[in-house]
């Protein structure tokens, strides 16, 4: 049974690495016609859509950078964290061989690649207990390019004239998009979280990447704020691949957590157009995959 869970996680890796979620696919397909026919943005989006189709058909990774695996796990009373961690690590080694994935875990001191995507702290796993039996595993494959353009700001920021309010957050987000240019593989998803301490908002920004780009923010004020940010980032004109155009971000997600009275951080985590996420529901030996 546990060996079956391991196999289901290998399948979760395959789904995440080779198939984009429906909402992202729909956006990419639709966005082509918004760019000037024959231009570089049009060429880039057409190439991306072609790439998505080939990867799904051949069941091969969308991108050669199969990213850092990040798991969000909710487990019922019939599971233990240590046991699940071991199964995930074993499945990661197998997925590296079987999907295949590129090995993306490097030792800082020796410079050696471990070759199997398992290293100290990798894959990243966030556990949460739940009352219902079974286990749910959300997996994102976070590419290095888009991870590198993520930024954390501390407010107030004099250079950006950013104070501790929504407009201050807006200034940070726009500045980060300008700095990113084409490096994070636009059109991207911008996941924004404000609050403190810094580790909390970093994790929440990753968790937020499971949101569908077709959903609304449940807080009306933040929903309007998200739409404004998306519009303004796109008006910067950076465009698909950074070659100029209208589609720099597919969506912006914003959430706010509490903060220490002295601290106010804003973090932006970008997800490349290959926004790879997949979810496994495991119960009584049966596996259901969603995204």
């Amino acid at each position: 049974m546990l060996r079956d869970l391991e196999t289901a996680i290998v399948e979760l890796y395959r789904k995440a690495a080779t198939e984009l979620p429906q909402d992202v696919r729909a956006y990419l397909r639709k966005s082509i016609s918004s760019e000037k026919k024959g231009g570089l943005a049009y060429f880039t989006l057409s190439t991306i859509v072609k790439n998505v189709d080939i990867a799904a058909r051949k069941k091969k990774p969308l991108c050669q950078d199969t990213g850092t695996p990040i798991f969000f796990v909710q487990y019922g009373p019939n599971f233990r964290q240590k046991q699940l961690k071991m199964i995930i690590e074993k499945a990661t080694e197998r997925a590296t061989d079987e999907v295949p994935l590129r090995s993306n875990s490097v030792d800082i001191l020796t410079g050696k690649n471990t070759g199997n995507n398992v290293a100290c702290g990798i894959p990243v796993i966030y556990f949460e207990e739940r009352d219902e039996p079974g286990v749910e595993m959300g997996l994102i494959l976070k590419g290095g390019g888009c991870e590198n353009v993520g930024l954390t700001y501390k407010l107030p920021n004099l250079e950006l004239q950013a104070t501790r309010n929504l407009d201050g957050i807006r200034r940070c987000v726009l500045d980060s998009a300008q700095k990113a240019q084409g490096q994070g593989c636009p059109p991207m998803i911008a996941s924004v979280v404000a609050g403190s301490p810094a580790d909390l908002i970093a994790i929440e920004a990753k968790r937020q990447l499971f949101r569908s780009i077709e959903t609304k923010n449940s807080v009306p004020e933040l929903d309007a704020f998200e739409k404004k940010l998306t519009r303004e980032i796109n008006e910067l004109g950076i465009g698909p691949g950074g070659f100029g155009g209208k589609n720099t971000v597919m969506a912006t997600f914003v959430s706010l957590v509490g903060r220490h009275p002295a601290s106010f951080f804003v973090t932006i985590s970008y997800f490349c157009w290959a926004s790879r996420r997949a979810i496994l529901q495991w119960n009584n030996g049966s596996a259901i995959f969603t995204s």
Binding site: T44, T47, S103, G143, A274
Partner: peptide, 26 residues
């Protein structure tokens, strides 16, 4: 085009050689 790894792989006809594979990794 960033991320277009399948479209680009289709244009690779063969691997002629590889150097430093063991030392540097894939």
């Amino acid at each position: 085009v960033g991320g277009a790894a399948q479209v680009l792989a289709q244009s690779v006809k063969r691997v002629k050689n590889v150097y430093k594979l063991k030392e540097f990794g894939e």
